[in-house]
């Protein structure tokens, strides 16, 4: 997580920007939530090695089933967040589903950052027809919602065939060529117009040197904003895939919400609504998505030099 703020700190023209990033309440809140989920990811193997040791038949997130009670059961001492309608332990599912969700966000975020940096800087540096083509392409890709593309490719296919990496990559490529390239290109345009670009050319710098040494460093932060906001969408898209088409042993946040909704509609008026499983699933999605979103929005605020005066 610190890696996200590093490029920003490295390129800060003054310590002011680094301070604004470090003090932004949105970024801090987002990083705190991310740290919590990182802990949850680590908790799964730790718990399996200690508290749940030898009880895989009860606590396994995919096949566990507690034969001593009726399911779904409300939170209790033995099942901290209750159990699902299939008898799986909700806390175990929650920790288990966090890992692939991080993977989705990481894949989407890194492909968005890479694409927007490469094509944004090339468009701004080369201008002319290259820029014309790339900006028209990104205008067109903005019209193609990345989430829908993920649904078209992923609905009714099991995780083994269309898993976290596929979701993240599909989302990342389409979002990356669309809104991300559009934004980063716009930022690169203002960099290219600055006088130090002429100085770099006069000094005899080649294209590769100018792009990597003089343009890219100013774009890392903008690409990070896009990567974070894109990761938000990728997390929600992945959750909806899991909601619509989790089959067999697939475990995901969306599928937990589905489990609760389907149970409460089947048992309407007979059994109480199993809020614990829905809140665990939907809360996991929203908190994780909000964490990426907050970091992204906070970075954008910290980047805007005009917010300096009102920072509190």
């Amino acid at each position: 997580m610190t890696a996200l703020t590093e490029p920003l700190a490295a390129t800060a023209t003054s310590s002011g920007r680094a301070r604004r990033v470090a003090l932004n309440p949105k970024i801090l809140a987002g990083l705190a939530i991310l740290a919590l989920f990182a802990l949850l990811t680590v908790a799964q193997p730790l718990l399996e090695a200690t508290v749940w040791d030898g009880k895989a038949n009860i606590y396994d997130p995919r096949f566990g089933f507690d034969t001593t009670i009726a399911h779904p059961s409300a939170p209790s001492a033995t099942h901290w967040l209750g159990t699902s309608s299939l008898g799986r332990d909700v806390f175990s599912m929650l920790t288990y589903a966090t890992r692939p969700t991080f993977l989705v966000a990481l894949t989407a975020g890194s492909s968005i950052a890479a694409l927007s940096l490469i094509f944004g800087s090339i468009a701004a540096y080369r201008r002319g027809w290259v820029d014309g083509f790339l900006s028209h392409l990104s205008d067109a890709m903005v019209l193609l919602p990345a989430m829908l593309a993920v649904f078209i490719l992923g609905i009714s296919r099991p995780n083994a065939e269309f898993g976290a990496l596929h979701v993240g990559f599909t989302f990342g490529v389409i979002y990356g060529f669309g809104p991300a390239v559009a934004t980063v290109r716009a930022a690169a345009m203002t960099v290219v117009a600055k006088p130090f670009m002429d100085a770099a050319r006069v000094a005899g710098g080649g294209g590769g040197w100018i792009v990597t040494r003089h343009i890219l460093p100013h774009l890392y932060a903008h690409a990070a904003v896009q990567a974070m906001i894109g990761a938000t969408g990728a997390v929600i898209a992945d959750a909806f895939l899991s909601f619509r088409s989790a089959v067999g042993e697939d475990v995901g946040f969306g599928m937990m919400v589905y489990d609760g909704i389907i149970w409460s509609s089947l048992m309407a008026g007979i059994a109480p609504v199993p809020w614990w499983i829905m809140v665990a699933g939907a809360g996991g999605i929203t908190l994780l998505a909000a964490a990426f979103y907050l970091v992204g929005v906070g970075l954008r605020e910290a980047l805007d030099p005009r917010t300096r005066g009102v920072l509190r």
Partner: peptide, 18 residues
């Protein structure tokens, strides 16, 4: 605002219907 941008839509629908 952040909730509106990051809530899981099917869960929102469930709450609305309920």
């Amino acid at each position: 605002g952040v909730l509106s941008a990051t809530i899981f839509p099917p869960f929102l629908v469930f709450l609305l219907v309920r």
